[in-house]
Design a protein around this nucleic acid. Structure first.
Lengths: 365, 365
DNA sequence: TTGAAAGCGGTACCAA
DNA sequence: TTGGTACCGCTTTCAA
């Protein structure tokens, strides 16, 4: 319900009709601005009001140390700037400077869990604190290469990107002046730094724990929700990797995040004779535990269950849910890393494994 | 663990030593580029390679319809651009154009729940789809006014901001050319559009529901976690508002998100003789229910419990958790609104209430 | 059909 | 201590 409240009179003169193409530029002789001055004041306006040159305005407002400006002049300039409400134009500045402080970050495709989104948020704050301008891009319908070109238009000093950027994309961005191109995901890309998050590790430690507990027929929940397969696949693979020559067997358990789907899964678990389930994460684990409980399956007696993410809710369940705690670097840490890479371009590409996983054993296994 | 992988030879000549101040600009006579050409190619480079003027390059690359360029020329220009890996410079372009497509959005201060962050994400995607450039700002340690000035440097075409921006800030941004300044939060600010999210509504419907169920002594959980008071306060107020002349009484229940804190709360609830609790949200409700259950308090017999957010976990609890479902506009809706406001600046400020709340009654009340 | 050139708003060199 | 001015890269008249 749009409730109109206040009328804004300023019709905003479109800003274009300012005279263009006037070599001598006589500046409206006399007449103390019959037209309101340029909608948004420039340093030239400040200079005029203060009775100095644009150069001086620049010196004063930037506290240029290589140049000494008299105190009275400084005051006049500052006052003029304040009176006019002058704000420098970032684009003009960086055009002249030849570089920006823009860090490009992708908008996550799916709402990817609290850990991930918290990290993203913290990173943004930290980068802002380092005086970077964080630009979120969500390149709709642009395939890798075109996307890279679109991003390069902003001349970012650093780019965080998913690895599907490709070698081509990395090259495009580097040639556009990006001092650090950093991929964020499972693989690395040639020529770019890599922040790896190997979710196989999550499955690996979960499986190791279950085997240690004497379990040998292990189900792995695969969420059917789109977007999650990105994480689920590697976690499953990690489980498989944990069995070098063990007699243990792994079974895939597709599960939608609905009670009905969980209920349907129970008979399957029984038929297969699974003595343990790695439930993808704590939320799916809770869903599954409810279904198992309702069906009279003993946990962990008959079937052990382990989740991941170490959410509070796991502690509230009965039996208390064993889980895999995932640790990611902090936002400030990551920001510092980005900053370092920016400061030292030309450095050889670095790879960092960011994901650390460890089991928090409780009652359900 | 930084594992070095590949050596990048390009030492990036810092781009500055390019000759400055040379009126005739003879361009390194002869010698087919003994120095690698300008690190990042410009339209002038493309023009030179294609043997045309920069104007023509611009015409071709932008498909300027007001001008007809011969097909052979077009091809030469396009080929040259491709060979050089030319990417236009967004800052230069918008400097010339006199406006940007930047939409400024705040980085949320706290990881503010899935609803909020999902909305934010969707909005970013939708805005990207509308060809806006989304810039996240997280103005560390800049008080309202200075912050506004810092943001104005980017010359955003639209700004989403918390209402603590202030009238001053709105004015600064408008004068810097922002065509839409939109506040996002409980209050409105003069001169700006407002997207209101009145969380009192959440408390109001919860309380109304409890009263309808015959409850009269109602506890309201106040999370002690910082950042949440922003939502908790209004929700509490909403509960109070729901009792015009009812004999019902409201009691505040501070609660930290820990089992121990919940356990300590139970005796308090008993002493006060509360017959219902609005638990802030589903997660706190689950925490509280566990504590009540462990203490042998009957739900809903002795004490009813209602949460908010309608998380899946509420359906898995026993008794099933009643909750308040909160509905927010979709990202695309919001993006369309922003777009409309941008297209029609000068329009009178609009206020939109975005939050819709309704009770989902289940077994716990 | 194409090119020359003026500027967009700042910065920084050089001369005064 | 200050001013003049050439640029940054791109768009867009205006003239040829």
């Amino acid at each position: 319900m749009p409730c109109v409240m206040v009328q804004i009179p300023k019709p905003q003169p479109a800003r274009k009709p300012r005279k263009t193409r006037t070599p001598p530029k006589p500046r409206e002789s006399a007449a103390p601005s019959p037209v309101p001055p340029s909608p948004v004041p420039t340093s030239a306006d400040v200079a005029r009001l203060a009775g100095v040159s644009r150069a001086t305005v620049s010196y004063v407002l930037n506290n240029t140390s290589a140049v000494r400006i008299s105190e009275p002049t400084r005051r006049r300039v500052r006052d003029a700037a304040r009176d006019l409400g002058y704000v420098p134009h970032a684009a003009a500045r960086s055009l002249r400077a030849g570089h920006t402080r823009i860090v490009l970050m992708p908008t996550p495709r799916v709402p990817a869990g609290p850990l991930y989104s918290t990290l993203f948020n913290d990173l943004q704050w930290a980068l802002s604190g380092l005086d970077y301008t964080v630009v979120q891009y969500g390149s709709v319908s642009l395939r890798g290469d075109d996307a890279a070109r679109a991003w390069a238009e902003l001349r970012p000093v650093a780019v965080l990107a998913p690895p599907d950027l490709g070698t081509q994309g990395v090259e495009v961005l580097r040639r556009s002046g990006a001092r650090a191109v950093i991929t964020l995901g499972p693989q690395r890309v040639e020529g770019a730094h890599a922040l790896l998050m190997d979710h196989r590790e999550v499955g690996r430690v979960a499986a190791a724990h279950l085997v240690e507990r004497g379990r040998h027929r292990i189900g792995v929940v695969l969420p059917t929700e789109p977007g999650l397969d990105h994480f689920a696949g590697p976690r499953l693979e990690g489980v498989r990797l944990a069995f070098p020559g063990t007699g243990a067997a792994v079974f895939e358990l597709p599960l939608a995040y609905e009670e009905e789907s969980a209920a349907q899964l129970v008979p399957r678990i029984r038929e297969l004779g699974l003595d343990a389930v790695f439930a993808y994460n704590d939320e799916y684990a809770m869903l599954l535990m409810r279904a198992l409980h309702d069906a009279g399956v003993g946990i962990p007696g008959e079937t052990a269950v382990i989740g991941a993410d170490d959410l509070m809710l796991g502690r509230l369940l009965r039996p208390r849910l064993s889980t895999v705690r995932i640790e990611l670097p902090s936002g400030p840490e990551l920001a510092a890393l980005v900053d370092r890479l920016v400061r030292d371009p030309g450095a050889a590409p670095e790879s960092h494994e960011m994901l650390r996983a460890r089991v928090v054993p409780r009652e359900s296994t």
